[in-house]
Amino acid sequence: MFQHHDEYRQWPFLNQEEFELACAFFDQRYVRASLGATRQIFKIRSRRTLTTGESYIELLRLLQLPENEDELSLALSKLGTGVVDPRSGGDMEMDTTEEDADNEALRLNHITSATNPTSNNALPQYSLYSHQPYVTYEIHLHPSYSVPTLWFTLHDLPMGEPSFDIDAVYRYLVPPEYKNRLRAAGVIGGISAAPHPITSLPAFFIHPCQTKEAMESFDCPIKDYLTVWIGLVGGCVGLWIPREMAEDQQEDQ
């Protein structure tokens, strides 16, 4: 009945090696998908911690699209050059392999590079339009549950709105159809808060206690694991895989 479960030591759980492989396949799917301008407002980066060498996935998404191109280029510049925690590895440039064929992405990259200062000594350039709210999602392997766990943080919200605030999460990330269900779930099985697994700064995450039940009825190869998993877990906090990445998965089958 299940053709792909033998790819795992214990489906639907992942050990570290299997998680690393799933991350590599997910990166590859992002690289080769024809995303156009979506590639610039939805970034996927492969990361590796310097302390342990373990991989994780970082995803960045603008919370709202600016109204004009100047605002967009400034926002994209910020998204593409975020501060990297010293305990994590540098970016693995996921956009370069297949982006040459993506004219819209190249056009936006040109705009972005023109607005991004390269000197470390340069004074910061402030603009009324440079601060666009965005969300950072991260996928880490949970050390106890042995399943992926979705962490997320909000950034650059309008003045006076705290980023680490559950009401802001519901306001900016949680779609209306999920709000009652998540609030009813409470801490276990819903949105939880804890120190980030790398930075130890306060962050939110989707508690992984129900991941096993959500995944075990699926029969997906390890190359599709994270795509399926995000489809089950990500929507409640506004994370969806671009249609082009999902179509790429269907073509592989």
Rank of each mutant, 00 (worst) to 15 (best):
Y172C: 02
E177C: 13
Q125D: 10
Y170G: 00
I166W: 04
Q132L: 03
N180T: 15
L128G: 14
H142W: 08
V169D: 00
Y129G: 12
Y137H: 03
S130H: 08
A122D: 11
A122V: 11
E177V: 07
P176Q: 09
L141E: 00
Y172A: 01
H196N: 14
A168Q: 13
K179D: 15
F152N: 02
L182N: 01
P195W: 12
S119C: 04
A168V: 10
T118S: 08
L123F: 15
V147L: 11
L123S: 09
T118L: 10
H155C: 03
F152G: 00
S113Y: 10
P158T: 08
A184H: 13
D156G: 04
P124H: 11
L128V: 08
R183G: 09
Y178H: 04
T115D: 15
A185E: 05
S163A: 15
L173F: 01
P143Y: 07
L150F: 03
L141A: 03
L150H: 01
L141F: 04
I166L: 12
H142R: 12
H131M: 05
P143T: 09
S130V: 08
Y170M: 00
N121E: 10
P117W: 12
H140L: 10
S146L: 11
P162F: 05
L173C: 03
P158R: 12
A184R: 11
P133R: 01
L173Y: 00
H196R: 15
L150I: 05
G189C: 03
H110L: 14
R171H: 11
S146E: 08
V135Y: 07
T136N: 05
H140E: 12
Y137E: 02
L123P: 15
L150Q: 01
Y134I: 06
Y145V: 08
S146P: 06
G190N: 00
T118H: 13
Y129I: 06
I166D: 04
V169P: 00
D156L: 13
T153F: 04
T118M: 15
L173K: 00
A184M: 11
T118F: 11
G160D: 06
P175I: 07
G186C: 10
D156E: 15
P158I: 06
L182W: 03
P124N: 09
Y137M: 03
T112N: 06
Y126A: 13
T153I: 10
